[in-house]
C-alpha cells in the first residue's frame, strides 16, 4: 500500500475517522439520497429517483439569485473578517502588554453570548433611531437616518462581528507560533517593516489565513438567524431556505437538494482555496 493509502486507512479506523464517518459522511449520504426522491405533500417523500429537485434549485432564477447572494456574503464576510481580524491577531500575537489577556477575553466574549442575543444587539445599533445613525447624524455625515437594517450591509456587519473569533484565533495561533527571529532575520538582511511583513510574516501566516477564512466562509454561508433577523425579506440566504423547507414546508427532498448544493459550493470553494494556497512544503 502506498503512503496515502495507508494514511487513509489509518484515518478510517481512528476514532476521529469513525466520528467523521458517522456524523459527516453518513448525513451527507443521507441527504444526497433524499435529494433524489420525489416530494409528496402527504407522504413527504416518495423514494422514486428524480432529478427534479436539483433542476429546480439550479435552473430557477430565484434559487440562482440566493446561491449567488449566499456565496457573495460569505466571501465578503471572510474578506472583511480577515482585513479586520489580521491586525488584531497580529497585535495579540506580538504584544507583551498586560492588556493582552483582556483583549483575548474581548475577542472570545462574543462567543459567550448567544448568536441571537448578539444579533438583537445589532438591531438596537443599526435601527433608524440607533446609535450608528445617531452618530452619523451628529457628526454631520448625513441629515436623515439611513436604512441599514434589512440590508446586506447589516447582515455583513453582524456576521463579521459574530464570526470574528473564528478568524482571529487561527490567525493568532499561526502568528504566535512564528519564530520571532525569522522576522528579525529579514530586518538584518535589509528588509524594512513593510517588506518584512509582506515577504515573511504574511506568507508564514498562510495556514491561519486559510483556516480562518475557511471557517468564516462556511459558517457565514450556512447562517440562518443573522440574515433572517437583520436582512429582512431582501437578504434571503440558502440557510433560511433550508430551514423553512425542513421545518415549515416539510419539503425534505428539495431541502436536501438545496443543502447539497450549499455543501458542494462550500466544499469546492474551500478545496480550490486550499489548493491555490498550497505551495512548497509547510
Amino acid at each position: 500500500m502506498n503512503t496515502s493509502g495507508r494514511l487513509f486507512s489509518t484515518f478510517l479506523f481512528s476514532p476521529i475517522g469513525i466520528v467523521y464517518l458517522l456524523f459527516l459522511l453518513a448525513p451527507i449520504g443521507f441527504f444526497l439520497s433524499m435529494s433524489l426522491f420525489r416530494y409528496d405533500a402527504f407522504e413527504l417523500y416518495v423514494p422514486a429517483l428524480t432529478t427534479e429537485n436539483f433542476e429546480r434549485v439550479l435552473t430557477d432564477g430565484y434559487y440562482q439569485e440566493i446561491i449567488f447572494r449566499t456565496l457573495k456574503i460569505a466571501f465578503l464576510t471572510s474578506l472583511f473578517s480577515l482585513l479586520l481580524g489580521y491586525p488584531l491577531a497580529y497585535f495579540l500575537a506580538r504584544s507583551r502588554t498586560q492588556w493582552r489577556g483582556i483583549l483575548m477575553f474581548l475577542v472570545i466574549a462574543p462567543l459567550m453570548s448567544g448568536i441571537i442575543v448578539r444579533t438583537y444587539g445589532w438591531i438596537v445599533l443599526l435601527g433608524s433611531d440607533g446609535a450608528v445613525n445617531k452618530t452619523l447624524i451628529s457628526i454631520g455625515l448625513i441629515d436623515q437616518p439611513v436604512q441599514i437594517l434589512n440590508t446586506e450591509t447589516a447582515v455583513l456587519l453582524a456576521l463579521v462581528h459574530i464570526l470574528m473569533p473564528y478568524m482571529v484565533f487561527p490567525l493568532f495561533s499561526s502568528l504566535a507560533s512564528q519564530d520571532p527571529d525569522v522576522e528579525r532575520a529579514a530586518g538584518t538582511l535589509g528588509a524594512g517593516r513593510i517588506r518584512t511583513f509582506l515577504e515573511v510574516t504574511l506568507p508564514l501566516s498562510r495556514t491561519g489565513i486559510l483556516m480562518g477564512s475557511a471557517l468564516v466562509f462556511t459558517l457565514s454561508a450556512g447562517s440562518v438567524v443573522t440574515p433572517a433577523l437583520l436582512g429582512g425579506k431582501d437578504v434571503q440566504m440558502l440557510g433560511q431556505q433550508i430551514y423553512d423547507l425542513v421545518l415549515t414546508t416539510l419539503n425534505w427532498p428539495l431541502a436536501s437538494a438545496v443543502a447539497f448544493v450549499l455543501v458542494l459550493c462550500q466544499f469546492s470553494i474551500i478545496a480550490l482555496y486550499f489548493r491555490g494556497g498550497r505551495h512548497g512544503p509547510a
Binding site: 441571537i116 438583537y120 438591531i123 438596537v124 435601527g127 433608524s128 433611531d129 440607533g130 437594517l149 434589512n150 433572517a228 433577523l229 429582512g232 425579506k233
Partner: peptide, 24 residues
C-alpha cells in the same frame, strides 16, 4: 403590503419586542 407599504419581516417574539421597542 410588502411592495407598497415596505413591510418588515418579524421573526419571533423577541424580534417583535426589539423592533417595536426600537420604533422600527
Amino acid at each position: 403590503l410588502f411592495a407598497e407599504n415596505d413591510a418588515i419581516i418579524v421573526d419571533n417574539v423577541e424580534h417583535a419586542m426589539q423592533l417595536m421597542s426600537a420604533g422600527e
